[in-house]
């Protein structure tokens, strides 16, 4: 792990002003930010670990917990909000049984809401592992979760 972190830091010539992008790359590598990796960043970049921790928890893009196999991001931009994204959010939370920002215990699903993806014409938008699903509604979100193998995604709903 330390070797990988060193490698990433070297790509930025050890410049500590690149702390945020370095952490993004580290997160991409490990799917989250393990504590050991952060300690390695702190040591090799000569930034106190308290400052690294501050930055990691400040920015929404970082996660200290492992993410699920399926990462769901629901856009909560204003355009999506006025098109009832809130109702979809509730549906997703109900089905997955987790709150926004959490991961299911079986590490299958992570679910988060995001500020705006800038795909307002398609709003509401649900992104599953980078793939955009536009004009989302309650029924469609249920169907997607069902397809991904979420058993709770009810009922005897027919296509």
């Amino acid at each position: 792990m330390e070797e990988k972190v060193k490698e990433i830091i070297q790509q930025y010539s050890g410049d500590r002003s690149y702390l945020v992008p370095i952490l993004q790359d580290v997160q991409r590598e490990f799917n989250y930010l393990p504590k050991d990796a952060l300690c390695a960043v702190s040591a090799h970049l000569s930034v106190p670990i308290s400052r690294v921790y501050e930055v990691v928890t400040f920015y929404k893009a970082f996660s200290l917990k492992p993410k699920g196999r399926y990462q769901l991001s629901l856009c909560m931009g204003t355009a999506c909000h006025v098109r009832s994204a809130e109702l979809i959010a509730r549906n997703v939370e109900d089905i997955l049984g987790i709150r926004e920002g959490d991961t299911t215990a079986d590490l299958e699903f992570s679910y988060e809401t995001v500020g705006c993806l800038g795909a307002c014409a398609l709003g509401p938008v649900l992104v599953v592992n980078g793939e955009y699903h536009g004009h989302m509604n309650i029924a469609k979100s249920t169907k997607i979760l069902k397809k991904l193998g979420k058993k709770g995604a009810t009922d005897d709903e027919q296509d």
Binding site: S17, L19, V20, E54, V55, F58, Y59, K60
Partner: peptide
Amino acid sequence: GGAFVCGESSALFASLEGRA
């Protein structure tokens, strides 16, 4: 890193310098 406040100039500079 995902923070609306970084659109504000002095917060943006802090972020560019590798800080919150």
